[in-house]
Computed example of a mutant assay.
Amino acid sequence: MKPTITIEYCPRCGWMLRAAYMAQELLGTFTEDINGVLLKPAAIGGAYTISVNEMVVYDRKERGGFPEIKELKQLVRDVVNPEKNLGHSDKTER
């Protein structure tokens, strides 16, 4: 079964649009590789985590900010389809 990406965001912080933008980018890049992207309002203030199934690939509180789309695509790719070429969004060194 294809994995589901969950973006959990703090609605009180106004991060829903950021989460929707990231969801759009991930859906466009991983159309064939994922089941979908779930936007989930967080119960904890300031939360912004991105996970593939139950595995957290990005946590704003741990990293001290938000990921760039290029970085996020690389993190998700490394879990859902490590062989996928991301073109211009790919790492320069592998």
Rank of each mutant, 00 (worst) to 15 (best):
T29Q: 09
L75C: 05
A19K: 12
D59S: 04
P82G: 02
A23N: 08
I69Y: 07
Y58D: 06
D33P: 11
C13R: 09
M55L: 15
Q74V: 05
N85A: 15
K84H: 10
A20M: 15
K70A: 15
N35H: 09
L26R: 05
V80P: 14
M55Y: 06
Y9I: 07
E83Q: 12
F30N: 09
A19G: 09
L27P: 02
E32C: 03
E62W: 01
L17K: 12
W15G: 07
T31P: 03
V37E: 04
S51C: 09
N35I: 05
V37S: 06
L38P: 04
W15P: 12
E68V: 04
A20Y: 09
S51Y: 04
A23H: 13
V37Y: 00
I34H: 10
Y48A: 00
L27H: 11
N35T: 06
G65E: 10
L38E: 13
F66Y: 15
A23M: 14
E62R: 11
Y9H: 12
Y58N: 06
G14F: 06
K84P: 04
C13F: 06
L17Y: 10
T31W: 10
W15N: 11
L27I: 12
L26M: 07
N53M: 15
Q74N: 11
A20K: 14
R60P: 02
E83I: 14
N81I: 00
E62I: 08
I69V: 15
I69A: 15
P82Q: 08
G64E: 08
I44W: 02
R12I: 11
P82L: 01
A47Y: 12
K84R: 11
G64V: 04
L26K: 03
M22G: 08
A19P: 09
F66H: 04
V56I: 03
A42V: 01
S51I: 01
G64D: 04
F66G: 03
R60G: 05
R12M: 13
G46N: 07
E25M: 13
N35D: 13
A20I: 13
Y9S: 05
L75K: 15
Q74C: 13
P41N: 02
L39E: 03
G64W: 13
D59T: 10
V57H: 01
R60H: 13
A23Q: 04
S51L: 03
R63G: 02
G65Q: 12
Y58S: 01
D33R: 06
I34P: 10
M22N: 07
L86S: 10
R77P: 00
F30Q: 07
